[in-house]
């Protein structure tokens, strides 16, 4: 069961000033970001033209993780803090634990798509506080562990308690985008804006406590991954105890339509100076460019967000070409994107 190191929740709950929430919101930004490379690696491993539902579901979740990262950064800015996105510390080492001890030692790596990865990693990451069990065993006793949702709730509670109605941050630093609906990504000027925004993160990730849907009537991440795991759509079902069951249309999965990525590929595994090594450097150069662009975006130049969207396409195209490339010296494997932090000017 996915846990967050309870120290972080305690830190939130014992905060006496908004400044004490800054590092926690920075952690939140890092956490939201840290899920994206594993999800994207799985998505990029799907051969173009195959497994469209798998691609579509992961893509929809990645987009929301980006939204959550943006919201967390907006809240940090609204409270007067400064998001840091362009530093080596920002990028997790894969395989490894996610920030804040998420999952009580859950090790997350960069791997090709498989139902095992969906079940054992992705669903673990997105595990709600009280996962609703649909048409299977009866609800067991509710465990009392803390989740990412509880962490956000703790921050939300403290903002409510400590913050003035008008938040102190520089309003011109708030980031919005035409790529997200205005009722999901909105500028955070007031305490109420911050509370509403945190609800969006929690519900998109976990659903509400009684429904797998969030406020936009979309399935929460956990249940979208569960659809992939079960190979069936989760649909309304009046005959089911919770009103939903995995009785919808099947989601076909073709394991042949997945590139056999070498798990947790690193640049150092590739022959120095080879074409593959160059392409990996190109990928990580784009990754750095993206982080750097986001850093600028969240530190006073919100208009830069559009440019970072372009960098995401550079990153995606390079990653997909890597995934289609055989791994030199590792027969049967292809190259996965490594998501390593490099400063391109460095040598």
């Amino acid at each position: 069961m996915l846990q967050i190191d309870s120290r972080y929740i305690e830190k939130a709950l014992t905060a006496n000033a908004l400044e004490e929430l800054y590092p926690l919101l920075q952690n939140a930004i890092e956490l939201e970001h840290s899920t994206i490379p594993p999800y994207l690696t799985a998505m990029f491993s799907l051969n173009p033209g195959t497994n469209p539902v798998q691609r579509q579901i992961i893509h929809s979740i990645v987009i929301e993780e980006m939204l959550h990262m943006t919201i967390a950064a907006n809240i940090l800015n609204a409270l007067g803090g400064k998001p840091v996105i362009n530093s080596a510390d920002f990028v997790p080492e894969y395989p490894g634990p996610l920030p804040m001890g998420i999952g009580n030692g859950l090790i997350v790596g960069l791997e090709k798509y498989s139902t095992d990865v969906v079940k054992n990693v992705f669903m673990e990451i997105e595990e709600p506080e009280n996962p609703i069990v649909f048409k299977s065993v009866s609800l067991a006793e509710m465990p009392t562990y803390s989740t990412i949702g509880a962490f956000y709730q703790a921050i939300q509670q403290k903002i409510e308690e400590l913050a003035p109605d008008e938040l102190p941050g520089d309003k011109s630093k708030q980031v919005t985008s035409s790529f997200f609906p205005a009722d999901e990504l909105f500028p955070i000027y007031t305490k109420q804006n911050a509370i509403d925004a945190i609800n969006i993160i929690i519900e998109q990730g976990e659903g509400t406590s009684t429904s797998p849907l969030d406020q936009e009537d979309e399935l929460a991440h956990y249940y979208r991954f569960e659809e992939l795991y079960k190979g069936k759509r989760l649909v309304k079902d009046d005959t089911a105890p919770n009103g939903y069951s995995f009785s919808g249309p099947p989601i076909p999965f073709s394991p042949d339509g997945v590139f056999p990525l070498f798990p947790n590929t690193k640049t150092s595994m590739l022959p120095v100076g080879s074409e593959e090594w160059n392409r990996m450097n190109e990928f990580n150069t784009s990754y750095y460019s993206l982080l750097s662009g986001l850093h600028t975006t969240f530190n006073g130049q919100p208009g830069m967000l559009d440019n970072t969207v372009g960098v995401m396409y550079d990153l995606k195209l390079t990653a997909q070409k890597l995934c289609a490339t055989p791994f030199p010296g590792k027969p049967g494997y292809n190259i996965g994107p490594s998501f390593e932090f490099i400063v391109p000017a460095g040598s």
Partner: peptide, 12 residues
């Protein structure tokens, strides 16, 4: 000796 590099934060 310093590096000459392309764009950062925007596409190449």
């Amino acid at each position: 000796g310093q590096a000459v590099v392309g764009a950062e934060g925007r596409p190449t």
